[in-house]
């Protein structure tokens, strides 16, 4: 990985030129690489610059990809199959290497950032040798906190989720939904700066999905964490999002970014409001347009 010209973490003296929108695609026109790397809109948390990723078989997935992601917002990533949605969040979160380019969180690397990640496959992501409660506690050992502070964190989290499951059980003794709830709490207990959700509900039944979505929604509203969600379910993607990020087929670029500003907390009932329907219809249109391109 090359890391050209790290932007300063402190954005105060870097007020960006007015013509650069949050879309982050304007600087490319300026032609000046250094500028493109340095400038980003106020309120930006994650900056991706010149990202390149080619698979071993030669398929180019990302070429010179730029993206700015806003702080404290939930961004849903939606796009055609195989366009690299999961690959993108895996590269951002630092669990997948990229060929070149730069991904920074307020100027910090992923290793220097507190990251929460919820995997789709909760069965293979939890630690079955630890009780559910110890699974939730586990990531706290990487933070410099006293035992009392750690306990307080866990207590606070459990209170905000208000769960009724027996956390002294082992993960394999819990239902799928309960296991995923444990995964979500494990990701949130460190009070992450960024939360990644990779199709967190797609392996669960609908009732459990609705329940977890509501829980997650209310906790995220409370905690104001920058969140990236990959979802195959457009209703879910829109309902949870402050912004829907639509991707093209590979080599992948941003097809559109559609804001969804309905007030929170939201629940499944929001899906019948005109604003929701409008955002969903526009997203769907762009999605279908991208799918049809060959």
């Amino acid at each position: 990985m090359t890391r050209p010209i790290p932007p300063k973490a402190d954005g105060a003296d870097l007020s960006p030129p007015a013509e650069i929108s949050a879309g982050g695609d304007a600087p490319a026109a300026s032609g000046d690489l250094a500028d493109r790397l340095r400038w980003f809109a106020p309120g930006t948390h994650i900056t991706i610059r010149g990202l390149n990723k080619t698979f071993a078989d030669g398929t180019v997935l990302y070429r010179d990809f730029d993206l700015d992601l806003p702080r404290g917002k939930v961004v849903s990533i939606f796009g055609p199959n195989g366009c690299g949605k999961s690959t993108l969040i895996n590269m951002i979160s630092g669990i997948l290497d990229y060929d070149s380019g730069q991904i920074l969180f307020d100027g910090k690397t992923a290793r220097e950032t507190k990251i929460g990640y919820v995997f789709q496959n909760y069965r293979e992501a939890g630690f079955p040798w630890l009780r559910a409660i110890d699974n939730i506690r586990y990531p706290l050992k990487f933070l410099k906190l006293s035992q009392a502070e750690k306990d307080a964190r866990v207590e606070k989290l459990l209170a905000s989720f208000n769960v009724s499951i027996d956390l002294n059980r082992y993960p394999y003794e819990l239902s799928g939904g309960q296991q995923q709830l444990v995964s979500i709490m494990r990701a949130l207990v460190i009070e992450p700066e960024v939360l990644f959700l990779d199709e967190p509900f797609s392996a669960l039944d609908y009732e459990m999905t609705l329940f977890l979505r509501d829980k997650l929604q209310s906790v995220l509203t409370e905690m104001q964490i920058t969140t990236l969600l990959v979802s195959h379910d457009l209703d879910e993607a829109v309902e949870l999002a402050d912004e829907v990020l639509l991707l093209t087929r590979k080599p992948t670029s941003v097809a559109a970014r559609i804001p969804f500003t309905a007030p929170r907390p939201r629940n499944a009932e929001i899906t019948v409001t005109p604003e929701f329907i409008d955002v969903k219809a526009r997203s769907l249109e762009i999605f279908q347009r991208e799918v049809r391109k060959t």
């Binding site: 979160s93 630092g94 990251i115 990640y117 990531p139 990487f142």
Partner: peptide
């Protein structure tokens, strides 16, 4: 060993 659990620990900063 399943890779996913190692990735989960890595993303936590292990």
């Amino acid at each position: 060993a399943r890779q996913l659990r190692q990735l989960a620990a890595r993303v936590m900063g292990a």
